[in-house]
Amino acid sequence: NMDEFAFGSSTESSAFGPTHNPWDLDRVPGGSSGGSAAAVAAGLTCVALGSDTGGSIRQPASFCGIVGVKPTYGMVSRYGVVAFGSSLDQVGPFARSVEDAAAVMDAICGHDELDCTSQQVKADFRAACKQDVAGMRVGIVKEFMEADGLTEEVRERTLEAAAKLEAAGAELVEVELPHVDAAISAYYVLGPCEAFSNLARFDSVRYGLCDEGHKDLGGQYESSRAKGFGPEAKRRIMLGSYLLSSGVYEKYYYPAQQVRTLITQDYTSAYQKCDVILAPASPRTAFKFGEISDPATMYLSDVFTISLNIAGNGGMSMPCGLGRETGLPIGVQLMSPQFKDENMFRVAMALEKEYGTAPVAPEFSDGKAGE
């Protein structure tokens, strides 16, 4: 299960009803790929796939206490995936161990002639898991650690993970991403514009719901799209339509692309000082159903993940224990330079040696999980 067309951060906007977090059934599993994350956390399967446009793998992985990988843009084929933001989308695995995630990545990465964005990639993720972190440079982003909305328990776990990596032989360095505060603003221009374009194909003829019985094609289009899209999908389609309209396009879309360039350059500069960046995956632990009703507030759930999709780099969420106040899973985010995703698997394996592999959620750990 997932948020409709991947439009969401909680799986509450699914046309099939919400998915519940296996750690607390009154809370969301994150989104948009919340169903995949919940299935792995509950022990229903050892691995699953999700898609990540602005954090839709890493945020639910954090909420559900499992490993979630968003590869570098172009590393994995997207053929067969319904497009949301074509310049942002990437497919990746969920798993309860780093090695399982590495095995999936070894299987799915590489060039696919059916996806023109996929690249010729040579990588061995399982081999990377056997290397230690001695001598690696781990970047800490000041802008992330001082961000508004970051809860103290998430900050504590992130700094604790950094300390464990330093103890394992890694060097901690401070890096800057000066334009990262503009990432959400740029994303919610670029994303809806691309979504508006992609979802135009759902015309009730080739794709999508067909509301039959109309005398003319225009009436069928209008009625089918009105009934076939949920509220969040309609919101983003209308926003994208407005942003791409005459007189508005130049005011918002062009500046958003310029911000994208600046953010990409920021990451390039940061990686000259480090091999991997360590940051929170989400500003907080899983929230309760209905707790966040304002769309703008919901969008802030991805404040630490969106900039990575804009830049196209690789990222993953790695479980690092439970929150001191909530007792719920917390994930730290590891980010690597483009097509150097093996770096973050090395660091993730070092953290897994400290925290252990992700357990099955307590309510489902009856000894039969995964059978």
Rank of each mutant, 00 (worst) to 15 (best):
E152R: 11
C210Y: 07
K164Q: 14
V138P: 08
K142V: 03
R201D: 09
A127F: 02
P192A: 11
E160C: 10
V133D: 03
E153D: 06
Y187I: 07
Y188N: 03
V205Y: 04
D148N: 10
N198S: 07
E113D: 14
K164S: 09
I140A: 04
R137D: 09
D132P: 06
F125V: 00
A128D: 07
V154T: 06
E160P: 05
A162R: 05
F144D: 09
R157A: 13
E212R: 12
A147V: 00
T117Y: 08
E153V: 08
L209K: 07
V138H: 12
F144T: 04
S204G: 02
V121N: 00
G149L: 02
R201Y: 01
D203P: 12
Q119N: 12
R126A: 05
G191C: 15
V180S: 09
E194W: 13
C193Y: 14
I140N: 07
E212C: 06
T117V: 04
E153Q: 08
Q120C: 08
N198M: 05
E176C: 13
K130D: 12
Y207D: 05
Q119F: 00
E146R: 03
D132I: 02
Q119K: 13
E194R: 01
V175R: 02
S118I: 07
E152A: 08
C210E: 13
E174W: 12
V175Y: 06
E153H: 01
L114P: 04
A200W: 05
D203C: 05
K164M: 11
H179R: 13
D181R: 08
L172H: 09
C129E: 10
E146P: 08
P192W: 05
E160K: 11
C116S: 15
A170G: 07
M136H: 03
P192G: 11
E153T: 03
D181S: 14
K164E: 14
